[in-house]
Design a binder for these strands. Structure first.
Lengths: 140, 140
DNA sequence: GGAAGTAGTTACCTTAAAGTGCGTAGATAC
DNA sequence: GTATCTACGCACTTTAAGGTAACTACTTCC
């Protein structure tokens, strides 16, 4: 039947919209970067263990120590996904106990600086936001 | 016992680190903004229904139509949290059936432009990233 | 010979975000 | 008098992210 009801049309639109969303590159990037340890790992690799200073390579166990709350599972999971995206490089060295170092690529560094702007926004406006929240919560 | 074992020290560090993380403003912002519909609502309000053009207020049902996949629940949930943060304003008008319009505040607009940079990054580098992913997946 | 350090993997469990479906309230149109 | 439009609210279910804990394999230190 050619009687495309409003409900049918909407379901159709919805399907196409969701299909678009699932491949939308910016949406996927955001979901990736918002992973709990992603920015922390990038921040550590991008600004040294104390989050000041210059980018430098770090070892697996060093990252584990700096990011005190991370489990080995989450650390390797995060590192592998970042490596898959070409944001960091993994280098294994055949020393006495094998050592593995991770380093930001140029691509990773450029993303890091972009994300940093978001961080700066949040630091610049956090007071404003919390003020709004308090006001909103008090109002009801 | 004063014998602070390495395990105890690590647990202590971890607790403090997690406490810090849970209040870290940038982390919280990122988690907020990464909500599935947050950026889409902001994008619609910030660039018109077609994601081009200028910021303009929109109605609840209009947003629901533009973001075809969103359920009424998620839409109002998203809108309320954005309103709570002072990023949008809600205005109810006592027309025949009540109409409610939402509009980006200045604060919301400034966040929108910041997030837009992330979007531009992802669009500029998406090919590079997918190339890395293919290479990585092929390697194993 | 047992602990500790190297870099992880595997299986299981918890929880919070998102999706689904139905109800509501007042008013108007048919 | 039934249906539709407005803007939601509530309860239930699903799903995926993250956390916990235990185990691997090799080596050196004490």
């Amino acid at each position: 039947m050619a009687t495309a009801t409003a409900a049918e049309k909407k379901a159709d639109e919805k399907a196409r919209y969701n299909a678009f969303l699932s491949v939308c590159p910016s949406q996927r990037l955001l979901a990736q970067v918002a992973g709990k340890w992603v920015t922390l790992v990038m921040s550590a690799l991008g600004s040294g263990p104390e989050c000041d200073g210059d980018p430098r390579p770090m070892r697996y166990s060093e990252l584990g120590r700096v990011l005190a709350g991370v489990s080995p599972k989450m650390l390797s999971q995060t590192l592998r996904s970042l490596e898959r995206d070409g944001l960091i490089t993994r280098t294994a060295t055949a020393t006495v106990p094998v050592t593995v170092t991770y380093e930001l690529t140029e691509l990773g560094l450029s993303l890091h600086t972009t994300v940093r702007q978001l961080k700066e926004w949040s630091e610049a406006h956090r007071d404003e936001v919390t003020a709004h929240q308090d006001q909103f919560d008090a109002a009801r």
